[in-house]
């Protein structure tokens, strides 16, 4: 009896503790949808031929469903806000535990960031990442000076103050998060034309950090080991500035490592992107209209050059994507 009581108390304690941790962790549904992106991937039921990895420049600019609709390419965006190169590496490593794509496309904007950005961005990416050695390694590589891994293990340490600020979504999505993206693409149909931009600052050094090159090397190695074609891309944007010196380093790296590199900044006219109508934030990211143009353009390259399968003739995959496309257009309609 005494033994049973002990077990009961411990079990009860664990349940309450887990419940509280889950309750106070933001659900990223009604606001800050960017926090639900890592988690959404785990709900996928079919594999993808292409995985896009990178920061907001992939989840805002690449629509996998447009690529499917036009070319039958199956793809997924594993991107998060301010995703650093070391985070891209660990996220790719995690992805390869679930599937081996034919092509990985890495957006290389984050090569210019040598230090973790900020704790709130780390949380957006990591809060709902499944526990694995990749997650632990990513936390260790990403933590700012003030952070502690315990706060990731027990979110209540970080979010305890939310207990008095809980919202309706915290209850509704207590056990099941809502998927807010479409194969990792976050729809934003707003239009904010590009105007003036801050002064283009002189930098003391334009060289990417050695540690970033180390992670890029690791990504190259990981792809080689898994027989994956790695492609580098720079999404079209007006700001933050993508200096010529940055571009030259990527061109040289791609040449040395026999990789293809697409700098879409140089191709905006060919793609048909108009920063007066195709951006939601004055030229930093594309809106739905711009992302559709880029996805059609890039999808065609992927299809032609990398010989990807057209799954529109595959009944199983096509049925899955029919539902996805229906949900996609309904979501656009609702916006």
């Amino acid at each position: 009896m005494k033994y049973l009581n002990r077990i009961l108390i411990i079990t009860l304690f664990i349940i309450v503790f887990i419940f509280l941790n889950r309750l106070v962790t933001p659900k990223y549904t009604e606001s800050l949808e960017e926090g639900s992106m890592t988690n959404a991937y785990y709900k996928e039921t079919t594999n993808h031929d292409v995985i896009f990895i990178g920061d907001c420049e992939v989840y805002a600019n690449i629509s996998p469903l447009v690529m499917y609709e036009n070319y039958g390419i199956t793809s997924y965006v594993r991107g998060n806000s301010s995703q650093d190169i070391w985070q891209s590496y660990y996220l790719l490593k995690e992805t390869l535990k679930y599937e081996i794509p034919k092509v990985v496309v890495l957006n290389i904007t984050s090569m210019k960031n040598s230090k973790p950005d900020s704790e709130p961005y780390n949380r957006l990416m990591l809060d709902y990442m499944r526990w694995s050695k990749e997650k632990v390694a990513m936390i260790n590589a990403s933590m700012t000076e003030e952070e502690n891994i315990l706060a990731y293990l027990f979110p209540i340490l970080r979010y305890h103050s939310r207990i008095t600020e809980l919202k309706k979504e915290d209850i509704i999505y207590l056990f099941q998060n809502k998927i807010t993206t479409h194969n990792g693409f976050l729809i934003n149909e707003k239009v904010k034309p590009a105007g003036s931009l801050p002064a283009k600052r002189v930098l003391a050094s334009y060289d990417f950090a050695d540690s970033n090159y180390d992670y890029l090397d690791k990504i190259v190695k990981l792809c080689k080991e898994n027989n994956i074609k790695l492609i580098l891309m720079k999404a079209p944007s007006l700001y933050p500035y993508w200096y010529d010196e940055y571009n030259t380093q990527i061109i040289n790296y791609a040449r040395t490592n026999n990789l293809d590199y697409y700098n879409f900044i140089d191709l905006v006219n060919e793609i048909g992107i108009d920063f007066q109508t195709d951006t939601y934030d004055g030229g930093l990211h594309l809106n739905l209209n711009g992302a559709t143009k880029l996805s059609k353009y890039f999808g065609n390259i992927l299809k032609e050059k990398y010989n990807l399968t057209d799954y529109r003739n595959d009944d199983i995959i096509n049925n899955v994507y029919k539902k996805k496309l229906k949900a996609y257009y309904e979501a656009i309609e609702r916006k």
Binding site: L32, E34, G35, D55, C56, S81, S82, P120, Y121, L124, G195, S196, L197, P198, A199, Y239, D281, G282, L284
Partner: peptide, 26 residues
């Protein structure tokens, strides 16, 4: 002379820059 407002990637905070004749205040 000019005012530039740039949204952050996910959060509501904004980077703002004010351009004067000879300098820019962020």
């Amino acid at each position: 002379e000019d005012y530039i407002e740039l949204e952050s990637c996910a959060f509501e905070d904004k980077d703002r820059a004010y351009t004067y004749e000879h300098f820019e205040i962020s």
